[in-house]
Design a binder for these strands. Structure first.
Lengths: 197, 197
DNA sequence: TCCTTTAAACTGACTGGTCAGTACAAATAG
DNA sequence: CTATTTGTACTGACCAGTCAGTTTAAAGGA
């Protein structure tokens, strides 16, 4: 994993297209997006989209991968810490990322559970990338005996991920006046049911 | 308010259209649905859709209202009980409903947080219908001193609703082999952070 | 019981517009 | 000199919505 490659002309263009797509996707949804609009929003010719991605679907697929890699980078634990803190760091990482890319959260949530939708295969894999990071940390809590009986690690991890996702969206959409600290507290209140004692 | 009127021809047709739409919406999403397909799935001519609803949008809007009224009916508390049990009944009601209408859960989740999407206005109201029922019960728990400090009732209610929604979807999509009892337990494990002591 | 009337309900071919994807010649950047 | 981008124009498929005509069934004679 070396540093980010010096941006070539195409990687700048791809980035512009990702940003434009995220800007548009929140309002109209994936199916409502047109390639013409994406290109216009990015300040790029339509042909450039096809030169870089080959199809609308490929652009979306790349966008999913791009977003998830950013999210994974944000929540991957930097150093080993106390299990309780580790889970809190997970929550903080999610809140930071979703605060920065709210459209991506909407995109995820609106496509994640569609079966057997076009993106289900891809999203299953990407979801696994994220939940496995959660699972690692929750497993540490389990080893420390912090989990109540009858709660298995995979379920708890997936549930935690989903919970943070929807609570954050609810915050952004229905209570934008609330501060991140307040939201952090409500999520952690829920989490305390999981990581107790 | 006399007894339920014998179903007219149109109410049967409308029901068929609701069912067909729910059957199709899980795979392609709202924007991917065509009126031709809905009509075909319902065994009805395209014109009938327009005779009964006037537009595709009106059909979807009616479907949202229909689904939420069913959900509300399912989770509305029958009789006053212990606050802890009341919250568990809320969770059980959600699980029953979402188990019966999985597509509706997908529909809700994929449109609920879209801003300023076409359905945002309607969905805000309908979300309020549901969360207010949650809020009532959670408020009882708060009165009984069961909520930890720093957790306010509206946030906790909305969070609980969202959490049950995504955990259920995750169950249906990624772990269909799990039993409802198991899922119930994982949700309640999370809830125990809220309703403790 | 059988015919007639009426309005509601339904039908499906058709229209007008939209959009993904293509083609390509000319411009520009590295 | 090569990779990339632009702009414009085009095609073919698809789809929401329309509408003139048809069917259904309930009510009312006779």
């Amino acid at each position: 994993m070396n540093g980010a490659p010096r941006p070539s002309r195409t990687s700048v263009t791809k980035q512009k297209l990702f940003d434009a797509t995220l800007r548009l996707v929140a309002t109209r949804g994936l199916a409502g997006l047109t390639v013409d609009d994406i290109a216009a929003e990015a300040g790029v010719a339509k042909g450039t989209v096809y030169y870089n991605f080959g199809s609308k679907d490929a652009l979306i697929e790349a966008l999913f991968r791009y977003g998830v890699s950013l999210l994974a980078q944000q929540i991957r634990p930097r150093e080993t810490v106390d299990p309780r803190q580790a889970v809190e760091q997970l929550v903080d990482g999610m809140l930071v990322f979703l605060g920065e890319y709210p459209s991506f959260a909407q995109l995820l949530v609106s496509e994640m559970w569609r079966t057997p939708g076009q993106w289900h295969q891809t999203l299953s894999v990407l979801r696994e990338d994220i939940t496995s990071i959660f699972r690692e940390q929750v497993a540490l809590a389990a080893d420390a005996g912090l989990l109540p009986d009858g709660v298995d690690v995979p379920t708890a991890s997936a549930g935690l991920f989903g919970t943070v996702l929807v609570v954050t969206l609810d915050w952004q959409v229905f209570h934008p006046e609330r501060s991140r600290a307040e939201v952090r507290e409500s999520v952690l209140a829920l989490v305390r049911g999981l990581i107790h004692r």
